[in-house]
C-alpha cells in the first residue's frame, strides 16, 4: 500500500507541525471564504461578526505561515497568532452566548467554534503545545562535541613530481 518510510527520516515534530499547518490551512479557507461572502453580500447586517470572521481567517493564515516557515521569526508569528486565536475564540464564545443580538450570524468562533466541531477551540491549544515542545527542543542543545583540531591553514605543499 505504501513504501515504508526509512527509520528516523525526519523528527516527528516536523511532521506534526505539517499536520497543524494543514489544519490551519483548512480553517483559513473556511473562515476566509465565509468572511468574503458575508462581507461582500450583507456587510451591514452584522458588521462585527463578519469582520471577526475576516480577522479569524487572517489569524489562521498567519499561524499557518509562521509554522510552515519555522525559525525564530516564524515561531514568534505562530505564537502570537495562536494567542490571538485562543483569546478570540474564548471572548467571542462567551459574547456569542451572552449577547446573541451582536452575533445574529455564525462566525467560526461563535459558541467556542461549535459550528466547526470545536476545532477552533482545540487548534490554538495544539499550536501552543507544539510551539512549546519545539522551544524546549531548541533550548537544550545537543551535547557539545569536543573542539576539533583546527584544520591546517595551509594546504600541504604540492609534492613536486619525482625527478625522472
Amino acid at each position: 500500500m505504501a513504501e515504508p518510510a526509512g527509520p528516523r527520516e525526519a523528527p516527528p515534530a516536523e511532521g506534526l507541525g505539517r499536520v497543524l499547518v494543514a489544519l490551519y490551512g483548512v480553517f483559513a479557507l473556511a473562515a476566509g471564504s465565509r468572511a468574503a461572502v458575508q462581507l461582500a453580500t450583507r456587510f451591514s447586517e452584522a458588521p462585527l461578526a463578519y469582520l471577526l470572521s475576516a480577522l479569524a481567517a487572517a489569524v489562521y493564515v498567519a499561524a499557518a505561515a509562521g509554522l510552515l516557515r519555522g525559525g525564530r521569526a516564524g515561531r514568534r508569528t505562530a505564537l502570537v497568532a495562536c494567542l490571538v486565536e485562543l483569546t478570540g475564540v474564548l471572548v467571542v464564545g462567551v459574547l456569542s452566548l451572552a449577547d446573541r443580538a451582536a452575533f445574529p450570524d455564525e462566525t467560526v468562533w461563535s459558541g467556542f467554534g461549535s459550528g466547526y466541531g470545536y476545532v477552533p477551540l482545540v487548534l490554538p491549544v495544539l499550536g501552543l503545545l507544539y510551539l512549546r515542545g519545539q522551544g524546549r527542543a531548541q533550548k537544550s542543545p545537543p551535547p557539545k562535541s569536543p573542539p576539533k583540531s583546527p584544520p591546517p591553514s595551509n594546504p600541504p605543499p604540492k609534492s613536486s613530481p619525482p625527478p625522472p
Binding site: 516527528p12 505539517r18 499536520v19
Partner: peptide, 26 residues
C-alpha cells in the same frame, strides 16, 4: 475542489509518517 489537490501536493512534501495525517485533514 481545491482541497484534495492541495492536500496531495502538501502531503508529498512531507517525508515522514505524518504525511498520511496531513492528507487526512483535507
Amino acid at each position: 475542489l481545491l482541497l484534495p489537490v492541495a492536500g496531495v501536493l502538501f502531503a508529498r512534501t512531507e517525508t515522514s509518517r505524518w504525511a498520511g495525517t496531513v492528507l487526512a485533514v483535507p
